[in-house]
């Protein structure tokens, strides 16, 4: 790709991001909504952790921060997924897809804009929550060390491929599949072993958990918090699984995008 073509691509990506950032710039309820659930989750689990520490007389339960770290990291996956899905759904709600896809924007540029918006939304959602955990419960997520970046990256990637799967379903089934954007990731929570080890799950469910990158991330997180060790095997498994799931989700999205062009859904999908 030439420099001019790359600049033109960058401008189209920025155009789509600007379309969404302009909405947030003026709307404090939208900004508040981004922080609302993560902060609420943090408060609930933070006080639960405090209560358990006092009740058991074991401050390690709080100091170790397993619950709090779980909440914070799982929010990265949740917010990452919703960031992509909601950015796409905004186009459907405003019935704007017809205009967007008769412009020269390429589908992959649209995907880049959705990922950019997801990243922005995730940072806005998570940062205040991390600060709150530090202020209220003296829990410093960054005490996990540099490996935290790898944990977060894996969870963000997982949120993204789940979102591509959801948007592919919306392209195929229309707004009837919209509810999946809000619920699918929550359905993966029990299998992601956010608050307990995979070994707690019944044997029949463990393969499902181990097929998800998130279960490996949280196993790694607990090892880092409890023993101060980095489980590279779990991190490698998480990256490998993310690569496989991402390839499958992107291929499904591309396939459904083409099917939508065959069915004429890009014009009628918001109806």
């Amino acid at each position: 790709m030439s420099a001019a073509a790359a600049a033109a691509s960058g401008r189209r990506v920025w155009g789509m991001m600007y379309r969404h950032l302009a909405l947030y710039r003026r709307s404090w309820p939208r900004l508040l909504e981004l922080m609302y659930w993560p902060v609420l989750q943090m408060l609930i689990w933070g006080f639960t952790s405090q209560f358990l520490a006092q009740r058991t007389g074991n401050p390690v339960a709080l100091a170790g921060g397993v619950l709090l770290a779980g909440v914070l990291l799982w929010e990265v996956a949740l917010r990452g997924q919703m960031g992509v899905a909601v950015t796409f759904l905004e186009e459907l709600w405003s019935r704007n897809l017809g205009h967007v896809f008769v412009s020269p924007i390429r589908p992959w540029e649209m995907v880049c804009a959705m990922l950019g918006m997801s990243l922005a939304r995730t940072v806005i959602s998570i940062l205040p929550t991390i600060l709150l955990a530090w202020a209220l419960y003296a829990f410093n997520l960054f005490s996990l060390g540099p490996v935290l970046v790898l944990f977060m990256l894996n969870l963000l990637l997982m949120g993204w491929w789940v979102a591509f799967g959801v948007t592919a379903l919306v392209l195929r089934h229309g707004m009837g599949a919209e509810a999946l954007a809000w619920t699918l990731m929550f359905a993966l929570t029990p299998f992601s072993a956010v608050f307990y080890p995979v070994s707690v799950l019944p044997a029949v469910l463990r393969p499902i958990a181990l097929a998800l990158p998130s279960a490996h991330v949280f196993e790694g997180m607990r090892a880092a918090l409890a023993h101060g060790v980095i489980r590279w095997d779990h991190l490698a498994a998480a990256f490998a699984l993310n690569a496989v799931w991402m390839a499958a989700a992107v291929a499904t999205f591309a396939w459904q995008f083409r099917v939508a062009r065959v069915r004429g859904a890009l014009l009628s999908i918001g109806e």
Binding site: R11, R12, G15, Y18, R19, A22, L23, S103
Partner: peptide
């Protein structure tokens, strides 16, 4: 989106 913002979005998309 405001009218100017809409035109800005499409101005960027069309370079």
């Amino acid at each position: 989106l405001r009218v100017a913002e809409n035109l800005r979005v499409y101005g960027h998309l069309y370079g």
